[in-house]
Design a protein around this nucleic acid. Structure first.
Length: 272
DNA sequence: GTCCAGGCATGCA
DNA sequence: TGCATGCATGGA
């Protein structure tokens, strides 16, 4: 991949492995919207981005070299060699088919706090509704970052919301979970930066102690927010997929379970 | 109107 | 440990 820093934009060429729609709209992140010109706009951290595929290159609008190097490069996981990982994963027949069909899914490195809150909201919920709840949450108490756009609220901002406030934005029965989580995060009882440094199982157990966090939500937070590429979220779709493996994971998934999961999840939703 | 969504907490065996 | 049930909400 080559990176060019223009006067306003950052331009990526020779990108081996990125499909914007598959990556930004596959249910791992909830703040990206497709625009009329087929570009994608979204918020991550306290940054707004518009990114568009233009022929063989990708244009990150109004993105400085600092923004790219210090934030988006890691967000899009560009430091990881997806080509060699997918080559390894393709040793499995089903995964090989999924990768061929949906080439270009990357795992985004999202903010741990946002990922945890988002996947608590996601439980027993559908993606379009998850998106709208999160948007209302950001509009209600996140930092304005310009253009009428708001960042995802920090713990102390969420802690100022009451259970009733969370219900008013449509969180439903998850309102209680969000309120408790915010309180614990502010008190330091939940420390995601510390959890990030733990071994996978310890990190997982810490997350499981949070009200409203079960196996699936914990694994999503680990994979999409806390940098655990080997986490393997098991939702209803993945349970169906795993019957095709007799319940045991192929050896070639090892170390890359998260990406394998995301491909199989996508494959299952379109083929089962 | 009815169904269902990237589940989880709870109670009971 | 394993299974049944209730849960808030709104888009399809």
């Amino acid at each position: 991949m080559d990176v060019f820093f223009g006067k306003h934009d950052t331009i990526l060429t020779n990108v081996d492995y990125l499909d914007l729609e598959l990556t930004l709209d596959c249910g791992q992140a909830f703040r990206w919207e497709k625009q009329d010109d087929d570009s994608w706009s979204g918020v991550a951290g306290n940054k707004y981005l518009n990114i568009k595929k233009d022929g063989d290159s990708f244009v990150l609008k109004n993105t400085s070299s600092d923004d790219y190097l210090q934030f988006w490069q890691h967000y899009f996981d560009f430091d990881r060699d997806y080509t060699s990982i997918c080559s390894r994963l393709s040793e499995d027949r089903l995964l090989s088919e999924a990768i061929d069909s949906y080439y270009g899914i990357r795992i985004l490195n999202q903010d741990p706090w946002e990922a945890l809150c988002s996947f608590i909201i996601s439980q027993n919920n559908n993606i379009s509704r998850i998106k709208s709840i999160i948007k209302r949450l950001c509009d209600a108490c996140g930092d304005p970052i310009g253009g009428g756009v708001y960042a995802f609220p920090r713990p102390e901002q969420l802690s100022l919301m009451s259970v009733d406030d969370f219900q008013k934005i449509g969180a439903g029965y998850r309102a209680e979970y969000l309120a408790q989580l915010a309180t614990q995060a502010v008190s330091g009882n939940i420390d995601l930066q510390k959890i990030k440094t733990l071994p996978l199982n310890d990190a997982r157990n810490e997350l499981l102690s949070i009200l409203g966090v079960g196996n699936k939500v914990a694994d999503c937070a680990l994979l999409f927010g806390l940098g655990f590429f080997e986490a393997f979220p098991m939702d209803t779709w993945m349970k169906k997929v795993m019957t095709q493996y007799g319940g045991t994971m192929p050896d070639c998934f090892k170390g890359y379970e998260g990406l394998a999961q995301q491909y199989l999840f996508h494959w299952a939703r379109h083929n089962l």
